[in-house]
Simulated scan of single mutants.
Amino acid sequence: MKVKKHRHADLENKRSIFFQIGLIVALGASLAAFEWGSDSNILAQPIDEDPYVEDVEMIPITHPEEPKTALPKPIPLEKIIIVDNTTPVVDDLPDFSSEDTGEPVLIPEMAEEIDDTPMTFYNVQKMPQFPGGSSALLKYIAEHVKYPVICAEAGVTGKVYVSFVVNEKGNVVEAKVVRSPDANLSTEALRVISGLPQWTPGKQRDKAVRVAYTIPVNFVLN
């Protein structure tokens, strides 16, 4: 009876693989032997016996000496010339010696600086009064304001706030624009306020004083 072999148990088919594995192992062992021999030769060679190593002498570093500065020769005392300055010194300062002469020393008084700027009030006991009252003031402004043509054509409207001062004589002074929507409207409002007639001045403790005011001038197109 002939014995049957299975294909997975037949080693003849794997002969080439075993041969390649053995060849790789042999080649690796040869390379390892060469590497081991070259490293051992390098480590065994002493460094001191290298014929190509030469002793280099170190040149000492020298610093140049700094030049010595000659000290000035002392001047003999007999050669020093003393100049006698006979020019009199004028001393305009008073003599404040510690000796008591018995005479009083007059110290000039400092002139006090006078502030000529009058004080401006914002609220006083009796406020300034426009001739005819507040209603007459509004009527005066409405009658004397001329709407600027350029603003009327462009449809510019709004309120111009003008501040001014009613002085001790009741005159309107220091008028200026505080807020305005347009420069042309500001010019017209400032012209009207500056031309206001004389007011009854305001009073504080029965004394006429300067009082500040702010009035809105309303520009409206009909």
Rank of each mutant, 00 (worst) to 15 (best):
residue 125 Q to E: 13
residue 125 Q to M: 09
residue 126 K to S: 13
residue 126 K to N: 12
residue 127 M to A: 10
residue 127 M to K: 00
residue 128 P to S: 07
residue 128 P to E: 05
residue 128 P to N: 02
residue 128 P to M: 03
residue 128 P to A: 04
residue 128 P to Q: 00
residue 129 Q to D: 12
residue 130 F to S: 01
residue 130 F to W: 00
residue 131 P to L: 09
residue 131 P to C: 08
residue 133 G to F: 08
residue 133 G to Q: 08
residue 133 G to P: 07
residue 134 S to V: 11
residue 134 S to Q: 13
residue 134 S to K: 11
residue 135 S to F: 11
residue 136 A to R: 04
residue 136 A to S: 12
residue 137 L to E: 03
residue 137 L to D: 00
residue 137 L to G: 00
residue 138 L to I: 12
residue 138 L to S: 15
residue 138 L to C: 10
residue 139 K to M: 09
residue 139 K to H: 09
residue 139 K to S: 15
residue 139 K to R: 11
residue 139 K to P: 01
residue 140 Y to A: 05
residue 141 I to W: 05
residue 142 A to H: 10
residue 142 A to C: 05
residue 143 E to F: 08
residue 143 E to R: 13
residue 143 E to Q: 13
residue 144 H to P: 02
residue 144 H to Q: 13
residue 144 H to S: 10
residue 145 V to E: 09
residue 146 K to L: 09
residue 146 K to I: 13
residue 146 K to W: 05
residue 146 K to N: 10
residue 146 K to C: 01
residue 147 Y to I: 04
residue 147 Y to W: 00
residue 147 Y to Q: 01
residue 148 P to D: 03
residue 148 P to H: 01
residue 148 P to Y: 01
residue 148 P to K: 01
residue 149 V to L: 02
residue 149 V to T: 02
residue 150 I to F: 07
residue 150 I to G: 11
residue 151 C to F: 03
residue 151 C to T: 08
residue 152 A to F: 06
residue 152 A to M: 03
residue 153 E to K: 08
residue 153 E to T: 09
residue 153 E to F: 04
residue 154 A to G: 06
residue 154 A to F: 06
residue 154 A to K: 14
residue 155 G to I: 05
residue 155 G to R: 06
residue 156 V to K: 09
residue 156 V to L: 09
residue 158 G to Q: 09
residue 159 K to R: 14
residue 159 K to W: 10
residue 159 K to E: 14
residue 159 K to P: 10
residue 159 K to M: 12
residue 160 V to G: 01
residue 160 V to K: 09
residue 160 V to I: 09
residue 161 Y to C: 06
residue 161 Y to S: 13
residue 161 Y to L: 13
residue 162 V to S: 05
residue 162 V to E: 02
residue 162 V to M: 04
residue 162 V to D: 02
residue 163 S to P: 03
residue 163 S to A: 15
residue 164 F to S: 07
residue 165 V to W: 04
residue 165 V to Q: 07
residue 165 V to I: 15
residue 166 V to R: 00
residue 167 N to A: 02
residue 167 N to M: 00
residue 167 N to Q: 03
residue 167 N to H: 04
residue 167 N to P: 03
residue 170 G to K: 11
residue 170 G to R: 11
residue 170 G to M: 08
residue 171 N to P: 02
residue 171 N to G: 00
residue 172 V to P: 05
residue 172 V to I: 09
residue 173 V to L: 09
residue 173 V to F: 11
residue 173 V to M: 12
residue 173 V to K: 15
residue 174 E to I: 10
residue 174 E to G: 10
residue 175 A to L: 01
residue 175 A to T: 06
residue 176 K to S: 11
residue 176 K to T: 09
residue 176 K to N: 11
residue 178 V to D: 11
residue 178 V to H: 01
residue 178 V to K: 12
residue 179 R to E: 15
residue 179 R to Q: 14
residue 179 R to C: 07
residue 179 R to L: 13
residue 180 S to G: 05
residue 180 S to H: 04
residue 180 S to Y: 00
residue 181 P to E: 08
residue 181 P to L: 09
residue 182 D to Q: 08
residue 183 A to Q: 15
residue 184 N to I: 02
residue 184 N to M: 11
residue 184 N to T: 07
residue 184 N to D: 14
residue 185 L to G: 05
residue 185 L to R: 07
residue 185 L to E: 00
